[in-house]
Design a protein around this nucleic acid. Structure first.
Lengths: 340, 340
DNA sequence: TAGGAAAATGTAACCGGTTACATTTGTCAA
DNA sequence: TTGACAAATGTAACCGGTTACATTTTCCTA
């Protein structure tokens, strides 16, 4: 246990202390710390000795104040509990770290008010840029970002008309891509299982894409919790329906996983009895039984692009352009022609 | 696109500007900002008007410098790509947010050198406390934490002898709990499938627990990637073995998921032909088919406790105590008596 | 209406670094 | 030995807030 603070007698030593102790000026010590060249090897040695003797560490906040940079980016996301966000953040963090930037995360649970509050808090702590999810946000966010003159990137979606650059997918189109796959296989009775629509423009866009695909399709939609439990539950309901759909389009892989398990439980064969399709292409989907047909969302690429765009803006003032992250259909074993 | 910086003409206005513009002193403005009581309603109004007219926002770094607090905690974890860590961080973040603290994350990919470097970077940016995973770390971490006088908490493990307080599970014991369950069901040929042991004391502890359970058990172990792919692959190998184990103890649920799928693919019935057990009790395990017997790790509780301990230390200087987060066996449908 | 306490506001030092510019020291050629 | 110039080091202002303490105003009482 090393938690007893050394209290009273030793307060953390500062640059001045080191300078005094080493018998040099603060400027020289500062130079050594930032290893600028114009210092004699001898004094450098002496100062370093004093530094380690005193256990001196520069105060990062003071430094940040003078140089005027915090090198910190804030990400405000709905949750870390879903792989898709966690993977995204993971990529953002890695790319930022490569440029010596840091990532502060804040989760909102999908509540726009919380989002605003957390964004405010991030600015309060000095982030130089912000990453948000989706296009719809409280109007006050605009004031914050312009007040702090900080760049904002909207992710997980692509929308030229948004008030900030967007780096993400065309959810509408990708849902249509999914529908087309099922349609081409011959499915005409399709049930879309999706997570909550409230405060989620991405899910909305996907659902709209599915809905507007073709009038030849008998399309039903069922909203459920965004989880395996939700998928499982939804399938439970669907199996009681009279004209049972021949295909399930799950707008998230986690929902598809729950669906898969529930169908197996009901002794229905996928894809022989019913086709199941996911959305996200999470890591496990290829290993599922049957391997899950899904829409691949290159979430790590999205994270990388997002981080890089922000860093370029901050370092070289390169304006951030919206980037369409192209998803793609990954056809695997869980979809096939409908029975009969 | 709101990315054109207003450049040259308008540099961000500061406290002094507001004071001048409002015809008051900086102290008064500062008081208004921090809504301390001793200010007339009238001047408060006037100042607030100027503030919003000038679009003034206080510089958080300057503030942090004077008050000497950043209210920021750093978490250094192997990866965000696994639910278990993401869920943990999620809980940490939420608990910190409740106390107005912020969370900076850094991932290491499990490399202790990267861990050291990232920890250094976090201290450089001014975190007041650090969360690490596991007990084994580069020795230099000690110097860092004492130099910055910052509390450190080790998580995902419980070990009184560790050099910092630990908040986590007794991995050794929990593995034995899992073994006991299988043993009591009658299993004597058990294969442990686990992720990489390198730089991972938690997995090591679990494996040791399993190994030292009983000499009556014919125990084999197979190391694989920590993923569904790894579980799938491992099962592929196991199925070729001569005396096939009657139970698989997967030291992570993700591995168990891969195993489950692979067994299904091989048309083996779980648990009739072979029992499968997981470790972590991730959200989906209850919905799996068959529902997965697993060791429940209350990862969110661990996150909450960790955050709270750090905040208490920082706010009230309450020493951080190690906390044993008790896991438990969750018996579900994937384990049963061995065949015959 | 003077006197005095309380409330409001102002002044200036300080937080802990960085850095422009000034000064000192060192080196080498004449 | 001296002068000139480069290298090393020092001085002090500054970053943008907070806050102890000083000063001014306000308001009430006698």
């Amino acid at each position: 246990m090393k938690n007893a603070s050394t209290d009273i007698e030793s307060k953390r030593s500062k640059l001045r202390d080191v300078a005094r102790e080493a018998g040099v000026s603060v400027a020289t010590v500062s130079r050594v710390i930032n290893n600028s060249p114009r210092v004699t090897e001898k004094t450098k040695l002496k100062i370093n000795e004093v530094i380690s003797r005193l256990g001196y560490a520069p105060n990062p906040v003071a430094r940040a104040l003078t140089v005027g940079r915090t090198k910190t980016i804030g990400a405000v996301i709905p949750t870390l509990d879903h792989a898709i966000f966690a993977n995204f953040l993971s990529a953002v963090e890695e790319a930022l770290a490569a440029s010596k930037y840091r990532l502060v995360v804040a989760t909102t649970g999908g509540d726009p008010d919380v989002e605003l509050e957390r964004t405010q808090a991030l600015f309060d702590m000095g982030v130089e840029g912000i990453v948000l999810s989706g296009t719809v946000h409280r109007a006050e966010i605009d004031q914050l970002s312009s007040r702090y003159e900080a760049p904002v990137v909207l992710t997980s979606c692509y929308d030229e008309r948004a008030s900030y650059p967007t780096i993400g997918y065309d959810n509408f189109h990708l849902a249509q891509l999914a529908m087309k796959h099922l349609f081409d296989l011959g499915h005409r009775g399709i049930c879309v299982i999706h997570g909550p629509l409230k405060n989620n423009d991405r899910t909305r866009a996907r659902l709209a894409g599915a809905r507007e695909f073709s009038s030849e399709v008998e399309l039903t939609a069922i909203e459920t919790e965004l989880s395996e439990a939700g998928g499982s539950e939804a399938v439970g309901k669907i199996l009681k329906e009279k004209p049972r759909p021949t295909a399930l389009l799950c707008l998230s892989d986690v929902i598809a996983l729950g669906a898969l398990f529930e169908l197996q439980r009901a002794s229905l064969k996928v894809p022989d009895d019913i086709s199941v399709m996911g959305f996200d292409n999470l890591n496990w989907s290829v290993h599922a039984e049957p391997a899950l047909t899904s829409i691949s969302l290159p979430v790590r690429r999205m994270g990388k692009k997002t981080a890089e765009a922000l860093v370029r803006k901050l370092e070289d003032d390169v304006d951030i352009e919206s980037v369409l992250i192209g998803g793609s259909l990954v056809e695997r074993a869980s979809t096939a022609r409908p029975p009969h």
